[in-house]
């Protein structure tokens, strides 16, 4: 292989750039939308005491254990124009997420949710409630205790959850292709592009390039989440 051929084999085509940028966009939007939900669920599961907690816990974890294709199919039913959520979008906003990148972000967010809830819940459970009562005796109302003590102390877990969730979003395949199909430039994220390229006899080089990007993104995410987890371990101890 000459150096010119090598460069051509290693350089992303415009279509591949679209795939990579779309994946990053889907992952980022999925995280932004899922984080508040994941935090609220993690909080309720860590601190709440109510009947049905076991059921809620199981529901949150469902996307982790269900075949992704089934999750995608459930999303499809929910967001179809006649479905419960699809009807709200159609009637209220005149829009739909089917075959759209927004649908891909929803699929990614749902699939990432259990991982994020687990990471955030662990870090909330690790916050020493004795520090919170100390803050109360110093004159802080519960809301201030949350913002000044509980939240900052659980930040490492929140960041770890974000990183894990982002990686999971970027890698989402089954639910996405079932829910919003494989539309170039709209829902064809990195794993879907790899799948499409594999179907073509001349797709080897493209598969290789996209796979390398996936490996790089995943490695960065793993190292980052590991580093954050170690930091959270250090902050945890209390004098």
């Amino acid at each position: 292989m000459t150096s010119g051929e090598y460069d051509a084999a290693m350089t992303l085509t415009p279509e591949e750039w679209t795939v990579v940028l779309l994946s990053l966009k889907v992952g980022a939007v999925a995280m932004a939308a899922t984080l508040p939900v994941a935090f609220a669920l993690a909080w309720v599961l860590a601190r709440g005491r109510f009947p049905g907690k076991v059921l809620l816990d199981a529901l949150v974890h469902l996307p982790l254990v269900l075949p992704p294709v089934v999750t995608g199919w459930l999303l499809l039913i929910a967001f179809a124009p006649a479905g419960p959520l699809g009807a709200i979008l159609a009637d209220g906003f005149g829009t739909s997420v089917l075959f759209r990148w927004t649908g891909a972000a929803i699929a990614a967010g749902v699939m990432a949710l259990p991982l994020m809830v687990r990471a955030i819940r662990l870090s909330i459970e690790a916050v020493d409630v004795r520090l919170e009562s100390a803050a109360r005796t110093l004159g802080a109302r519960p809301a201030r205790v949350f913002w000044s003590v509980t939240l900052p102390l659980s930040v490492p877990g929140v960041l770890a959850g974000l990183v894990l969730g982002f990686a999971r979003s970027i890698g989402e395949f089954g639910a996405t292709i079932t829910f919003v199909s494989n539309v170039p430039g709209e829902t064809r994220t990195l794993p879907l592009a790899v799948y499409s390229a594999l179907q073509r006899p001349d797709g080897d080089a493209e598969v290789f390039r996209l796979a390398m990007i996936a490996v790089a993104l995943s490695l960065v995410a793993l190292v980052a989440s590991e580093a954050l987890a170690r930091r959270s371990g250090r902050v945890r101890h209390v004098l």
């Binding site: 020493d128 004795r130 520090l131 100390a134 102390l153 209390v238 004098l239």
Partner: peptide
């Protein structure tokens, strides 16, 4: 209230 363990905010 001064607790037995100082309970200073670690962050």
């Amino acid at each position: 209230y001064v607790f037995q363990e100082a309970r200073l905010f670690p962050h």
